[in-house]
C-alpha cells in the first residue's frame, strides 16, 4: 500500500500526497521507511523557512510569495507548523486563513501540522514532509514556524534559506532571541514597515549580524499587504538559495549533528530508565558512599557494555 501511494505521489497525485503525510505523521517506522526509499531523489525544490515571533506577518508574506512564484509557473508546497504547546490537548490551526486564495491552485499544496501530540519531535516530522514534497515534484517548499527557539533552528538545518521575520517596535523581544535563530537566519525581513520604528530594528540587526560563510545576510523591508514590496524578498530568496550561496553542506552538518545527538540521547535515556544500577548509584551518591564522578564513570561503562556494544 505504501509503495502504491509513493508511486502516486511521484506522479503528482495530491490526494496520495496528503494521505502519505498523515501516515508518516502517525507512524515513525513508515516515515523512516519512506525516507530511506526516496533519499536519492535529488532535492530539486528550493526549501525556505519563515520563522519569527507570533503575529509579525509570516503567513501574509508567504501568501504574497506564493502569488509571485505561481505567476512564474512554479509548483509550491507549503508546510505550516504550529509548535505552540497544547495545554488543552487539541490544536487550532489558522495560518491557512491568510493564504486561502491559493487553495484551489493546482500548483499549490498547503498542509498544516501541529505538534499537539509530539512537541519535541515536530522538527523530525517536518523535515520528512519536506523531503516527501520534494519527491512530489515541488519547485519550492516553504515552511512557516512560529517562534525563535530550538524548533526553528532545527528546521533551518534542512532548509536552503532561513528567513527571520521581524517587525517594528520589538526592541526587547529581539534581544531575548539572541541565542537562537537570530544567528542562523540567511535573510532578515522587517515586515509591517508601514508602521514607525523599522529603523530601530534595522540598526539593531546591522550591529549584530555579520557576514557568514561568505554571505552577507540582507535586511529586507516589506509590507505584507503590498505585493510589490515583497518582490525584492523573492529576489533575495533566489539569490541565496542558489547552491553556492546557501552552503547546504554546512546546514546538513548541523542537521546530522542534531540527529546524532538526539539518537544518542534517546538511547541513554532509555538505558537510564530501565537500569537498576542507576538507582543504586543514586543511593550511593546521595549517602556519600560514592562520588558522582566515579558514579558516572561506572554508569558509562555499563551503558557502553549493555547498550552500545549490542547496538550493532
Amino acid at each position: 500500500m505504501i509503495e502504491e501511494l509513493m508511486d502516486n505521489v511521484k506522479n503528482g497525485d495530491t490526494i496520495a500526497l496528503s494521505k502519505l503525510i498523515s501516515i508518516m505523521e502517525k507512524d515513525e517506522r513508515t516515515r523512516k521507511e519512506v525516507i530511506k526509499k526516496i533519499f536519492s531523489c535529488p532535492v530539486r525544490g528550493k526549501i525556505i523557512c519563515f520563522t519569527g515571533p507570533p503575529g509579525v506577518g509570516k503567513s501574509t508574506l508567504i501568501d504574497q510569495v506564493l502569488s509571485i512564484l505561481t505567476s512564474e509557473g512554479k509548483k509550491v508546497g507549503v508546510i505550516l507548523v504550529d509548535p505552540r504547546s497544547p495545554y488543552t490537548g487539541g490544536a487550532l490551526l489558522g495560518d491557512r486563513v491568510r493564504m486561502q486564495r491559493h487553495a484551489t491552485d493546482p500548483h499549490v499544496f498547503i498542509r498544516s501540522l501541529s505538534c499537539a501530540e509530539n512537541p519535541e519531535g515536530i522538527s523530525r516530522i517536518v523535515k520528512d514532509v519536506i523531503k516527501l514534497m520534494s519527491f512530489a515534484g515541488m519547485d519550492y517548499i516553504i515552511v512557516e514556524t512560529v517562534g525563535t527557539g530550538q524548533i526553528a533552528v532545527e528546521v533551518s538545518f534542512i532548509c536552503h534559506t532561513s528567513v527571520l521575520v521581524l517587525m517594528p517596535n520589538m526592541g526587547d523581544d529581539i534581544q531575548m532571541m539572541k541565542a537562537g535563530i537570530l544567528e542562523v537566519a540567511d535573510i532578515y525581513v522587517i515586515n509591517k514597515s508601514d508602521i514607525e520604528g523599522a529603523e530601530l530594528v534595522e540598526a539593531y540587526l546591522k550591529e549584530n549580524i555579520g557576514k557568514r560563510n561568505g554571505w552577507e545576510p540582507p535586511i529586507v523591508k516589506t509590507i505584507g499587504y503590498n505585493r510589490s514590496s515583497v518582490v525584492p524578498l523573492v529576489e533575495k530568496l533566489e539569490e541565496h538559495s542558489s547552491r553556492k550561496n546557501c552552503r547546504y553542506d554546512e546546514k546538513i552538518k548541523g542537521l546530522l549533528t542534531t540527529m546524532f545527538l538526539d539518537h544518542v540521547d534517546e538511547l541513554a535515556l532509555k538505558f537510564l530508565k530501565k537500569s537498576e544500577d542507576f538507582e543504586e548509584f543514586v543511593k550511593d551518591v546521595a549517602n556519600c558512599r560514592m562520588d558522582y564522578y566515579t558514579a558516572i564513570e561506572n554508569l558509562y561503562a555499563k551503558f557502553k557494555k549493555e547498550v552500545l556494544s549490542n547496538e550493532g
Binding site: T88, G89, G90, A91, L92, L93, G94, R96, V97, R98, Q100, A103, T104, S112, S114, A116
Partner: peptide, 19 residues
C-alpha cells in the same frame, strides 16, 4: 472542538465550495 482534543483547521470567511 480544539478544547475537546481535536486538531482543528480553520479556513476563515467567504470560502467557495472549491476552496
Amino acid at each position: 472542538l480544539k478544547n475537546a482534543g481535536y486538531e482543528v483547521i480553520y479556513t476563515g470567511i467567504r470560502q467557495s465550495p472549491e476552496q
